[in-house]
Amino acid sequence: LFPLRLGTALRRGYRWMILRAPWLYELIYQVFFVGKRAPGTSPLTVLAAARLRRLVDGWRPDEVVSTFHLAAQITGRLRERGGLACPSTVLVTDFAVHRLWLHRGNDRYLCPNPDIIGYIAACTGQPALRCAPVVRPVFGRAVADPGRMARSVGVDPAARLVLVSGGSWGAGEIVATARALVRSGRYTPLVLCGDNAELRRRLRAAGLGPALGWRDDVPELMAAAYALVDNGSGLTCEEAFAAGLPVVIHRPISGHGRDGARAMAAAGVSACTGDPTALLEALDLLDDARTRKRRADRASALFRSMPAESGLVSSPKGRVLGLDERRAGQLDDAVGQAPDADRLEHDP
């Protein structure tokens, strides 16, 4: 959507910061995303709004759904100024939310974290509904076979496998995390490196367990693992919740990663640690069946919310489901309890 290949430059710059200069991203995040004097709308929206409007005019969709904070800013600006005729829904994919997710021009917000629904509604003045995380159903159906999985990656079938993830870019202090697990003698790390070939080389050179590239069997890996150690508090964590796999977020990445980790820990769906000793203690606690079950129950409760797709359907007339019911007093407690799918009525 950005002119002069600015989008490509922004994407590459963001990746460079996350991998090479996380302190710089943290500075930008504190100043522009959560700072008290930060602008409510990103100036980048002006550059992309015209192109999005042309796309919408050509496609004539029934609804526009944003799954990224900058996209939510663009759609909110267009909707507020009459440049977007159809409803605009924002699906918040982070467990924590910062101001650049929130624009009063959007029609409604869907969010998997019930603790921030009220905050979203108060900031935007728009309906905010709790929805289940958007995760492929296969993550809840994979069959556990730790021994077979261990043999397939070349480790002892009796090993206690801990899946380690740094996102698709292999960001964060992954080598140090894997080293702490190996040195404990109690856990064998399986590291998901994504497309980070350098990370794979470093892990293999240090003898720190299997270093895995892109995989299409992540549901099976999660079913076989003892726990997931992640540093991003994003989709991979939600996939683990669906799989019933306990999550420990260790040394989260800067900015939204750290805020998301704190929000997940506050909700009781994961642990958050900052040093190797705390990481191993958090993993050891999962040996207790009651602790493991309590964590799994809290995480699985997220999926008993309204499915996100039930909150996305709009009528050809542009009526926003949930908004009319709320005005009429028929949508009960949108902050704490999402309506069941069969309670959502469609226009003829």
Rank of each mutant, 00 (worst) to 15 (best):
P210A: 12
R327P: 00
A150K: 09
L190M: 13
A132I: 13
P276A: 06
D107S: 09
L47K: 02
M222V: 03
A261E: 03
G232A: 12
D342S: 14
D259T: 14
R319E: 10
L312C: 12
G318K: 06
R15P: 00
G260I: 04
S165L: 05
P137G: 05
T277S: 11
I120F: 09
A338Q: 00
T93G: 00
H256M: 14
D340Q: 14
G329Y: 06
A178W: 05
A211W: 09
V248L: 00
G82R: 12
A223Q: 13
K317D: 15
E80G: 04
T45C: 13
C237I: 03
P22T: 01
D340M: 10
R37V: 01
R215E: 08
G234P: 11
A50N: 10
T291E: 15
R51W: 12
L203G: 04
C193F: 10
W59M: 08
W169P: 00
V64K: 06
E238G: 02
V248I: 10
E281N: 08
F139H: 06
R343C: 12
G257Y: 07
P316N: 09
V162F: 08
D217H: 03
A21S: 13
D94Y: 01
G167L: 04
H98Q: 13
A263I: 05
M306G: 02
D275S: 12
V153M: 13
I28C: 11
L55R: 14
L102K: 08
S315D: 14
G311A: 13
G118Q: 03
R104D: 08
G147A: 15
P219I: 05
N106H: 07
D333P: 00
R290W: 01
P87Y: 12
R200P: 13
V64R: 11
A211H: 08
P189A: 15
R179N: 08
Y187E: 07
R77K: 14
D145H: 09
R202Y: 02
M306F: 02
F68C: 10
G232N: 13
V164Y: 01
D217G: 02
V90F: 09
M149R: 14
A334V: 04
G244H: 01
V31L: 15
A158G: 14
